[in-house]
Structures are given as C-alpha cells and as structure tokens.
C-alpha cells in the first residue's frame, strides 16, 4: 500500500461518491420494480444508456434547449419502460423468477441492438450542464458535473419519498409491494401499478443516464456494466430497501475508488464484490434488507 496524502484520499472519496450516486440511482430503479413485481429487471442498465443517448439526440443533434431535451428524454424512456412492461413482461403467462429474468435479459439485448442501429457504435458526448471548469477543494478537484450527479440523486430521492409517502398512487404501489392479493382486493389495479413501476424506474434510469453522459460519454453497450453495479448495490443494501440502495450504491462507489487508489487499480472491481460477499455471508439479507423479503421466491 502506498502512502497517500489527505488531498488524494479526499479526491478518491469525491470520485467514489459521484460514481456511487449513479450506482445508487440504478439501484433505486431496480428496487421500484422489484418491490411491486419481485422481478430484477436486467434491462435497467439499458434504460440508463437510452437516457444518455436520447439526451444526446435531443440536445446535441436536434439542438433542443437543455431543459426541454431533459423532459423529452425522460418522457421517451418512460414510454420505453411502459412498452417493455406491456409487451414483454405482462404477456408472460406462467411467470417463474427465471423466466422473468430471461425476459428482461432478452429486452436488454433488444434495446442494445436497437440503440446500436439508432446511434451507431461510437461513444457519444454531451456537454456538461455548467461547464467543465473544475472547483478546487483542499487540494482536490470537483467537476461541476459531479455536483449535478449528487444533486439529482438527492432530488430524485426526495421526490420519490414524497411520492410513496404522500400520494395515493404511491401508497397504492407500496400496498402492491406488501401484498398484491390484498391490494387487488381493496380495488387497486395491480397491473397498472406494475406498469407504473416500470415507467417510473425507466424514468429514473434516464435521469442517471443524462447526468452521467457528460462525465463518461455513452455508447450502446454500456448498460450491462451499469446494471451489474446497480444490482450489486441493491443486494449490498438489501433488496427492496430504498435507503439500502443509496447506502449500497455509495459504498460500492467508494470502495472501488479507494481500492483503486490505495491498493490496486487492476483489481478494483473485485474489492467491492469481495466486501459484498463478506456482508452476505454474515448478513444474508444485505445491510438494510429485511430477512423475510430475502426468503421469497425460488427459481
């Protein structure tokens, strides 16, 4: 291990938190769908990819102002989420967990293929929202776009909290999550809630995609990597738990970043997974997960 200065460690943390925020956003998307349907949607990463690519299309290629392009992108990807549910998930007649997983994998392959046709194979770039002049902080630097990433995560979490706690639809979705049969008995349209969950998590994926593209560029096949990181975050935090998703995402981002900075960058992806395995062996339901939730469903 190399000796690292405080400003270096600060830099590792800043980068880790930023990347972790993206993982957290992907993880929240996983959880929204999981809570209503028990499905892990492996196409979640493709929603993020589509978010970034559509934003490039609207803002850079078509020249639409950033705010409107932002809205267009979210609407477009939300629609994709809706279509995915309507034409890929709902028609499955005897859903077992493995069948549903394969269906979402099929969707992710399809979306990837379509994106390759629509946007080509080269990475695309999006201008940063507020320029690229870095901010100095105790010897570390912060790209303005980092603040956008973290800020949008906070805003997303606040809006979601309000939605699930205060609105009727949000409460209905939570009821579906707790017990779909009981929910449909009290007159909640479970099918609509599932559709809503897909749209909602597609929309959140799109936000993640839009905000990360100025940092990392975006190309058609980036979805899988983001999905794996998001899924790791979900499991680390505990399936179905929103605070867990945030904690899990941030932790994985920070571990990767510190692991790369302090130990070995070649093995950095392995560190987060080793920590994850360690946590699971001691606490099989993740850090903040409910042991009951982790028991349901066989394959």
């Amino acid at each position: 291990m190399d000796g690292a200065s405080t400003s270096q460690i600060l830099q590792y943390l800043i980068t880790g938190i930023t990347i972790g925020s993206i993982y957290a956003m992907v993880a929240i998307g996983f959880n929204i769908i999981y809570n209503v349907t028990d499905i892990i949607n492996f196409a979640q990463g493709e929603f993020v990819m589509l978010g970034g690519m559509s934003m490039v299309l609207f803002h850079v290629i078509l020249g639409i102002p950033i705010i409107i392009a932002f809205l267009f992108t979210i609407i477009l990807v939300t629609l994709v989420g809706l279509i995915v549910d309507r034409f890929a998930i709902r028609p499955i007649r005897q859903p077992s967990v493995l069948t549903l997983i394969i269906a979402t994998i099929a969707v992710s392959i399809l979306l990837k293929g379509i994106a390759m046709f629509a946007w080509g194979k080269d990475p695309l770039d999006l201008p940063a929202f507020s320029g690229r002049t870095p901010i100095q902080l105790f010897g570390a630097v912060i790209q303005p776009q980092y603040l956008w990433v973290i800020g949008l995560l906070v805003v997303t979490v606040l809006i979601l909290t309000f939605f699930f706690e205060k609105t009727i639809i949000g409460k209905a979705m939570r009821a579906c999550a707790d017990n779909p049969d009981a929910a449909s008995l009290v007159g909640i349209n479970v099918k609509k809630m599932i559709m809503l969950s897909f749209s909602l998590s597609a929309g959140i994926g799109a936000i993640a995609g839009i905000v990360i593209t100025p940092i990392s560029l975006m190309e058609y096949d980036r979805g899988a990597m983001l999905a794996i990181k998001g899924f790791s975050a979900v499991i680390l935090g505990g399936l179905g738990s929103f605070p867990g998703a945030i904690v899990g995402g941030l932790l994985i981002g920070i571990i990767e970043s510190l692991g790369a900075g302090l130990i070995s960058s070649g093995y950095k992806d392995a560190f987060a997974l080793i920590v994850l395995l360690g946590v699971l062996f001691f606490k099989p339901s993740g850090l903040l997960g409910n042991i009951e939730i982790s028991k349901i469903k066989r394959f």
Partner: peptide, 14 residues
C-alpha cells in the same frame, strides 16, 4: 482501469 469505467480521476490522482 476497466473498458467501461465512468471516471479515471482516481488513477490519475494517484
């Protein structure tokens, strides 16, 4: 760093 990494600040900082 990985081929799909989103940020390489850490390696450069080091």
């Amino acid at each position: 760093y990985g081929p799909k990494d989103t940020d390489i600040t850490v390696q450069l900082t080091k």
